[in-house]
Design a protein around this nucleic acid. Structure first.
Lengths: 245, 245
DNA sequence: AGCTTTCGCTACAGGCCGTAGCGTAACTCG
DNA sequence: CGAGTTACGCTACGGCCTGTAGCGAAAGCT
C-alpha cells in the first residue's frame, strides 16, 4: 500500500522538492519534510565528493543528512536513483549565452559541460548511473528526464539561433530536425564525456577550439591551428577560411 | 611478500594469458594454472551477461570457474580490474578493413564498435569501470592500455590510409598528428558510446551514415539524407556532393 | 628427496542492504 | 477537540558480499 505513492513522489517533483509538479494536493496525515529532502540530496553530493560512487552507502548519507535510514528508503528505493536526483540539479546551471556565432556558441557549451564534468560529484556519479541504467529501464528513463533532456535543450536552442542567423539551413520536416538535433547532441556530449572520463585528459579552451572547428568544418576542413597563445581571452577568430555555411 | 609478484602478473600478461609478455621466466614452485586464468575470465564474462556489473560477485565468478575464491584474489585484487581484463579481449576483434574511402572506413568502424557495445558484457561493464577509474589512477591506466589503446590504433590506421589516398592532408608535426588523432578518436568513440548508452538508442546503419556525413562534412555540409531504404546492403553512395577534401 | 609456490577448502570478522516493529510527531477532517 | 492517517526516528535483525587466515595437498624446480 506504499509503493504507488512512493512511485508518484519519486517520479514527479523529487528532483526539485521546492517546486513540486503537483501543487501539493492536501493528503491526510503528516506531510513529508521538504527539509529532509534537501538535506538528503545535499548529503548525497557531499558523500559523492568525499567517497565516490562505489563507497557511498545509504547509511552514511542518512547520517550526514541527520535523518534515519528508513526515512531515506521511504523516498528512494535504490542508491542509483538517489544519486541521479542529487546530481540532476547541477545540470540546471547549464546555460547558453548568445555569443554571436555558431562556432562560439558551441565552444561555450562545450566548456560549460566540461566544467560540470570536472566536479567530483558528477565525474564519479554520471558514468556509474549510466552503467546501471543498461540493466534498468526505470533508471534509464529517470536519467533521460532528469539529466539528458536538460542538456539537449541547449542543443535545440543553439540550432535555432544558428538557423536564425543563417548559419544553418532549416530542416524540411520536424522529424528531420529532431534526428539532426539528437545526432549533434550525441556528438558534442559524447566527445566531451569521452575526452574527460575515458581518455581522462583535460577539456580546456584549446581542445574546445579544435573540437568545434572539427564539428563545424568537418574532417576535411579542420585547420590544424597552432597551439594557441594561452593568454588571449578575446573572442576566437571567427573561423579562418571560407566554409560552406 | 606477495604484492610485488601479484602486481607484475597483473600488469604484464594477464589480459592474454596464452601469450605472456615475459616468456615465463622459470620461477621456483608450482606455476599458476593458465587454465584457471582462462576459466575465470570466461566465467566473468558469463556472469556479466547474466547478472550485470552491480550484481556480479567474486564468489559467484569463482564458483562458475570451478575455482576457489582465494585463487581468484591471488590474481585480481578487485572486481573492477578483473572485469577490465575479462572485457579487454573482446576489443581485439576490432578491425578496419579497407573499404576504399574515408567515408566508408569511418562507417565501418562505427558499426563495428557499436556491435561491440551491443553485447551485454561490454554494455554493462564499460561505463562501470570507467566510473570507478575516476577515483583510481591504477585502474585508469589499466583501462587505457587494455581497452583504449586497442581502439585508438584503428583511428591511426584509418588516418594513414586516408592520407595515402589524398583524402586528408598530412600533419606538419608528429605532435600535431597525435593531437588530431586523439581528437577524432574521442569524437567517434564518444558519439557512439553516448548514443548507445546514454541516449540508449540504436546505432544502426542509418545513424552511422548520418554521423559519418557530419564528421566528414561538418555541420554546414551535412546533407539530411532521406530515411534510407532499409533493404540495400550495397555500398553507400560515395558521398553526395563535392567536399573540400 | 627438499624447497617453493599454488590450489582448494573452511572459517571468519566486518560491513552494507533492506525490512520490520515500535512509539512518537505532524497534519486533516468531522 | 478527538479520531484517523501518514511521516519520522530508533533499534534490531537476517542475509549477502568482501577480503583474509590457516590448513593440507598438489605441482613444479634443483
Amino acid at each position: 500500500m506504499d509503493a504507488p505513492y512512493l512511485l508518484t513522489g519519486m517520479v514527479a517533483g523529487m528532483s526539485t522538492p521546492a517546486t513540486p509538479a503537483t501543487p501539493a494536493q492536501p493528503r491526510p496525515g503528516r506531510p513529508r519534510s521538504a527539509a529532509a529532502d534537501a538535506a538528503i540530496l545535499r548529503a548525497t553530493r557531499d558523500a559523492l565528493v568525499e567517497l565516490g560512487w562505489s563507497k557511498l552507502t545509504m547509511g552514511d548519507v542518512a547520517q550526514r543528512a541527520g535523518v534515519a535510514k528508513t526515512t531515506l528508503y521511504r523516498r528512494w528505493a535504490h542508491k542509483n536513483e538517489l544519486v541521479v536526483d542529487a546530481v540532476a540539479v547541477l545540470f540546471d546551471e547549464l546555460e547558453l549565452p548568445d555569443r554571436g556565432s555558431l562556432l562560439e556558441d558551441v565552444q561555450g557549451v562545450v566548456l560549460q559541460f566540461a566544467a560540470l564534468l570536472e566536479r567530483p560529484e558528477t565525474k564519479t556519479a554520471l558514468m556509474a548511473v549510466v552503467a546501471e541504467s543498461t540493466r534498468d529501464a526505470v533508471l534509464r528513463e529517470r536519467i533521460r528526464s532528469a539529466i539528458v533532456d536538460r542538456q539537449k535543450r541547449l542543443v535545440l536552442l543553439g540550432r535555432e539561433r544558428a538557423q536564425a542567423r543563417g548559419e544553418l539551413p532549416y530542416e524540411e520536416s520536424p522529424a528531420q530536425a529532431a534526428r539532426n538535433a539528437d545526432l549533434i547532441f550525441d556528438v558534442i556530449a559524447g566527445a566531451v564525456v569521452h575526452r574527460a572520463l575515458v581518455s581522462a585528459e583535460p577539456v580546456d579552451a584549446t581542445w574546445a577550439r579544435n573540437f568545434t572547428a572539427l564539428l563545424v568544418g568537418g574532417l576535411g576542413g579542420v585547420p590544424p591551428s597552432s597551439p594557441a597563445p594561452p593568454a588571449a581571452p578575446e573572442a576566437t577568430p571567427p573561423a579562418p577560411e571560407a566554409q560552406t555555411w
